[in-house]
Structure formats: C-alpha cells, structure tokens
Design a binder for these strands. Structure first.
Length: 123
RNA sequence: GGAGUCGGCUGGGUGAUCGCUGCCCUUGCUUGCAAGGGUGGAGGAAAGUCCGGGCUCCGGCGGAUCAGGUGCCAGGUAACGCCUGGGAGGCGCGAGCCUACGGAAAGUGCAACAGAGAACAGACCGCCUAAGACUUCACGGCGCGAGCCAUGAAGGACGGUAAGGGUGAAACGGUGCGGUAAGAGCGCACCGCAGCCUUGGUAACAAGGCCGGCAUGGUAAACCCCACCUGGAGCAAGGCCAAAUAGGGAAGCAGCUCUUUCGGUUACGGCGCUUGCCGUAACGUCUUAGAGCAGCGCCGAUCCGCGUGCGCUUCCGGGUAGGCUGCUUGAGGUUCACGGUGACGUGGAUCCCAGAGGAAUGAUCGCCCUCGACAGAACCCGGCUUAUAGGCCGACUCCUCAU
C-alpha cells in the first residue's frame, strides 16, 4: 500500500479548525509562485489544504487550473513529504505561468519543506 | 462567381496510465468503512445578477397613500421589462432592419448659441406706396402779406407686408393658380390636418365620403396625468440530530465526632395589639467556617508523607462545534401525431442526463486534424444582456457571367 499515489479525503484539510491551527502555529515557506504554511501533525502522513482565491487567480478557470496543478504535484510527491499539514496559497505571478513552470516550482517547494521539517522534528 | 440579410447547430478528436467524486452490484469485516467491477460527472453562455417565477420562512381582513416599474394592439406563458403575429413611423435598390410607439385640448416648467423675433410671435435685409398723414416740386384759386385751399407728380417711413433672404434642432400648414400697392387661407384646386359619418378589422388602425380655412409649435429617458403591475427577506432560506466545556432547572445521595456562625423553627417574656419587632433559651434536621477520623488521588504494594475532602450521580430543556437534510424527477429531455400563420398548446411513446461541500469533474504521455476562442455548476427554472477562435446547415435578396 506504500507505493500507491492516491489522494483520498483524509489526506486533505477539511475543517476550518485545521486551517486555523496551521496558520497559527505553522512555519512559512515560499517562492515566486506559492506560499506554504506547514505544521507537524500526528496522523502519520502529510495533509494538503489549498487557499487560492479568485482574486489572486483572476478568474475561476485559472483558479481551478492552479489548484489542480498543486493537488496533482502533492499527490505524486506525497511519500517524500513528512507528516505535516500544508496550506498552499498561490501568488499573483502564478496566474500567467505555464504548467511545467508551476510543477518544477512545486517540486523544489516540497524539498524545502522536507528539509526544514526534518531538522525541526529532530531538534 | 461576388456582395449581403435572416434563422439554426457546433464549441477539437482518440488511446494508455495514474487520480477525485455521485449511484448500483459483489465481497470482507471492526456496521460504516475498505477492496473489486459497472455506470454518470460543467456551459452556450455555467458569467453579469438586469427582469420574471417556483420553493422556504416572516407578515397579512380589505383598501388607500408613498415608492418603484411597465406603456401602439392582439395573442402566448407559471410569470415577465420576454416571445409571436399585426399596426404606425423611420432607414435600405432589396432580402430585411430599427423604434422608451399612451397623454402636450388638466396644470407647472424648460429651450444654450445664433437670430430682428422662440410662444397672447417677430420688421434685420428685402418688397410696396393703394388709402390717410408728412416732405418736395408743378399748376390753379384766395389773401396787402406770412400763408391757406384744391388738383397732379415724386419721395421715404412715423405706414403696409410673413411671399423671398438670413439664423436656428425648431420661425405659427405645403404646392400651384387667382388676387393685391406689395402680400397674406384673402379666395380656389390638390395634398396635409381637425371634426363628423360610413365600411373593413377582436383591436391598434386603414379606406372612402361630408365638412371646417386651419386650429392643438417642441419637450413627458422634465415634473406631471392616465391605465396596469409589485407585501418583505432569501438555500448562509428553512427543517432534523447533537459531543466536549461553562452555565440553567429538577430529583436522589451528600459518612461520623466536636467547635463555631448568619439565619430558621419552637418555647417564654416585653412592646405593639393587624401583618410584626426586640431579648433570652433550646434544637434531630437546614446555612457558614474550622479541626480530627473515614473515603479518594499520587506510589508496583503497606506504612509515612503530600494533596483532596471541591460535592457526586441521574434526568430535562436551550444552545455552540460538528453531522444529516433541503439537493436535484423537473413549468425536464428526445420523438411522433393533432390544433394554430406563429409564439405555443393537447395527447401518446420513451429516457433519467453533475450534485461538490476548504468545494470533485483532473494530470501525464502518445497519435491525428482545420492547431482549439470566451470561459467553471453551488437551490432550481423562464428570459434578457455581455464575452466568444473557428466550423457547419437552411431560407432569401442584389449584382455579374453563361445557357
């Protein structure tokens, strides 16, 4: 079961309280396209929450495109990420970026999260 | 073949792999989850939220006022500001297109600039000199004279004239003839307009006749008048279940001993003589505080020690997080027949066609083509408006060429 790349509902942030907990006690990362807030959890795997508004995306179609790109990248890399709750939000520059650009950016972002959280968990 | 008008349809295809989600089936168990299989999974505008409804809650006897909206006529519809058909006006050679298209004879208001004049009109240029007045001249008469009178000619305007020029968005019916000093509905003919009548039409309206010299200048997306319509809020509507914590109510239990305390109850005395107030004494229970012993917790266990001794248990109701529902079978799609010019209606057959909830409907890699626009459901329908790469189909018009 370790190798499957599914993304069921329990791997996503579903509650308002989960988001508030992440924003209150999470560590923040970011790059040109995205901003991430990460908080360790005790579930045994990472969970993803998305915060992409129509205002930053420009239109509903563009908003859906960005959300789906993030979700798919998280799904494919979920086994490399430690057990943290992630809230990913998009920045304005992601609106005009190509899909490949966004995917490359996300891969580096996951790596950054993994390194930072690994050190903080050991300490 | 070219140019155009109108109406309708479509909105990349296909395969593999990995995912998300509604429903159905099977299996498993920890009985609401997992696995496997099947099947469904954004739009013509899902958009703007501009109208109209359904649905839900609140309010409501019926009306009036206020406010807002609609505005040629008839029909369609659940309803509409929508659609269909018709009328009128305007544009186009035409197919066709456009129209906020009720009332200015109820009242109030407004009209910049230009212009002479803008609403009981107006003489700037021009035109005219018929009549009256005036000026000049000629001739005649009267008077001593200044001058007066009569006739004729010329002249302007202090007069007449709204036909022409010019101004303007708009200048108080149009064209022609007559007429006149020049003109003018001043008169006449035709056109227009108003009134009345007849005919056709459900009606808007049209046609014809008679008749009036001609009125009611424009503006109502200015106030206004007339006719008709509108109760308010919205699925975060509304309904159901309901944890933890705190608080509310009820019931039961709140160990034993001693001391203390505010009350309470009872007895006695005094005051008052209606409820009551004051003092003293007692008290099983009740209120407050303290001490000791039980009990409980901390420790693997007994003792010691420390803490606790706060109340505890059960039930009820409100309510938060959360969950379920509303939630997709509907003014529904497809098709056939019939009625209707049409919008549409009636009847039959057949199909089930997204239902998320921090929010699914996707990603990657191939192949093909004409290389792909605008754009993402959030309770549901009917419209309108706006955005849109292209492609396809049908009907019709004009021009050119050929036969």
């Amino acid at each position: 079961m370790r190798g499957r790349l599914t993304l069921p509902a329990q791997r996503r942030l579903r509650r308002k309280s989960d988001f508030e907990a992440a924003y209150a006690r999470g560590r923040r990362f970011g790059n040109g396209f995205f901003a991430v807030t990460a908080k360790p959890n005790d579930i045994g795997g990472p969970r993803l929450g998305l915060a992409v508004s129509v205002r930053t995306a420009g239109s509903s179609v563009e908003r859906n495109r960005i959300r789906r790109t993030i979700r798919e990248s998280f799904r494919l890399h979920q086994h490399e990420i430690p057990a943290v709750d992630l809230v990913v939000s998009a920045r304005g520059r992601a609106r005009d970026a190509a899909g490949a650009e966004l995917r490359a950016s996300l891969v580096t972002l996951w790596k950054k999260v993994t390194e930072q959280c690994a050190t903080s968990l050991h300490s």
